[in-house]
Amino acid sequence: MRISKGALLVVVAFLVPFVVEFRTALSWFGIKLSILESLALGGVLVIGLLLWAVWPEDGNGGTGAAGSS
């Protein structure tokens, strides 16, 4: 993994304020997301994040700094 499980949990948690505020920010540009669309966006971001996190950093299963965290 690229980051520790603890760090991954915290980053996933960070997506909550990001998605909530992103929805508000988009409205300034006339893009209005419904709740379902916001949930879908959040889901896509979480899946993308999980894929990034578990994808081997160097193709050989290297874990970088994650081990110590």
Partner: peptide
């Protein structure tokens, strides 16, 4: 001190599995 490097990469080296640290940081 825990091996973190880079402008922001050091954030990954913080002890995020520790509830005391994570709670206070959040």
């Amino acid at each position: 001190q825990r091996g973190g490097e880079g402008y922001l990469g050091w954030l990954k080296a913080l002890p995020w599995r520790d509830p005391i640290f994570t709670g206070m940081a959040l």
